[in-house]
């Protein structure tokens, strides 16, 4: 496990939020696009969906993540095992978040059918322009055991 950290910007853009909301079946929800409705709810404007943090892959593609954080995973046998978001507040359309990505956990476990499975959790903390916490994403990859047969 390395101590490396990748820092990047995550812009929250209106068109992108609309396309993302549509892709997850929520395009008619005014919270994602309607300035007046969101202001009446007490927000400065439209928000991004709770899972929008996955779009960090646009800013930090897999190859960059791997070369900088160096988990040395064998992607031929890697699955997305788990995903977690801890949300202080939903991102606001128009702001740019600061992301800090690192490997938070890296451990091995015996597989049910023999061999060793490995779990790697990438943690990304997102903060706003004031440095306040917005949300944290935990992206856990599971490397399955090598074929023993």
């Amino acid at each position: 496990m390395t101590d490396e950290v990748i820092e990047f910007d995550l812009p929250i853009e209106a068109d992108h939020v609309n396309r993302f909301a549509a892709a997850v079946g929520d395009e008619y929800n005014p919270i994602y696009f309607d300035p007046q409705a969101t202001q009446e709810m007490g927000f400065p404007g439209p928000l991004a969906p709770p899972t929008f943090g996955v779009t960090q892959i646009f800013q930090v593609p897999r190859d960059e993540r791997e070369s900088k954080l160096g988990a040395n995973l064998d992607y031929g046998r890697v699955l997305h095992g788990e995903q977690e978001f801890v949300i202080t507040r939903l991102p606001l359309v128009g702001e740019t978040l600061k992301g800090r990505m690192r490997i938070a956990k890296d451990f091995e476990k015996e597989g049910k059918r023999g061999g060793t499975m490995r779990f790697v959790t990438y943690e990304t903390k997102f903060t706003d322009i004031d440095g306040d916490e917005v949300m944290t994403a935990y992206y856990t990859l599971l490397q399955t055991a090598k074929d023993v047969g």
């Binding site: 919270i31 699955l79 095992g81 788990e82 995903q83 977690e84 801890v86």
Partner: peptide, 11 residues
């Protein structure tokens, strides 16, 4: 969705 504070999924 503004009420969601944590969302965790296992595939």
């Amino acid at each position: 969705p503004q009420h969601i504070r944590r969302f965790k999924t296992r595939f």
